[in-house]
Amino acid sequence: MSFKVAVCYGHPVDQVAFDTYYCDTHAPLARKIPGLSDFTWGKCHTLDGGKPPYYAIASLVFADADSMKSGLQSEEMQQAGEDVRNFATGGVTMYIHEDRSLYNQ
């Protein structure tokens, strides 16, 4: 089991500016969060070709609850969190969830 912080980005005013800022500025800040075991990001698409509710989703993955708690309370997380307002013109929704594999049961 792992723990994830999902960061769901609404559709930005300027997609090119969002992508550039996210990859060049924000992601390097987020990668510094202590306790991360993985960090992924991707743009959203729907199966029917419609507009998805989010533009992109990032996942901050932690091995356990204690690592996640420490990471969320860190100075690095505070800096990354404050940086979101610099590029997330479409808003942001964040939540925490536990991942349990159902594949190999």
Rank of each mutant, 00 (worst) to 15 (best):
C44I: 03
V61L: 05
A17L: 06
S37L: 09
N104K: 14
K69V: 11
K4V: 15
F18L: 05
Y95S: 11
H11A: 03
P28E: 09
E98D: 11
A17V: 07
F3A: 02
F3H: 08
T25N: 09
G71P: 07
H26K: 00
D48K: 00
G10F: 01
V7Y: 10
E98Y: 06
Q78Y: 07
Y103R: 14
T89V: 07
P52K: 08
T93H: 13
E82T: 11
S59D: 08
F3C: 06
Y9E: 02
A27H: 12
H45Y: 07
A6K: 12
G90H: 05
A88Y: 07
L47K: 11
L47G: 05
Y9A: 02
G10E: 05
S101Q: 08
M68T: 09
V13G: 04
A17D: 08
V5P: 01
V61T: 13
V7G: 09
G35H: 00
G49H: 02
L72P: 03
A88L: 01
A80M: 02
Y9L: 10
E82D: 14
V84Q: 03
Y55H: 04
F3T: 06
T89N: 06
P52S: 13
C44K: 11
V5E: 01
S37I: 15
G71W: 02
G91K: 06
G71S: 05
P28T: 03
N86S: 05
W41F: 15
D64Q: 03
D99F: 08
G81R: 07
S74A: 08
A17K: 10
A56G: 08
R100D: 09
H11W: 14
D48E: 04
T89P: 00
A80Y: 06
I96H: 10
F39W: 12
E82I: 03
R100L: 12
H97S: 13
D19P: 04
A65Q: 15
K51T: 14
E82H: 10
T20H: 14
S67H: 12
V92L: 12
G35M: 08
K69G: 11
Q73A: 15
A30S: 01
S101D: 12
Y54S: 04
V16G: 00
Y22L: 03
L102S: 15
T93V: 15
M77V: 06
D64M: 01
T25Q: 12
S59C: 12
M94A: 14
T93E: 13
T40L: 10
C23W: 13
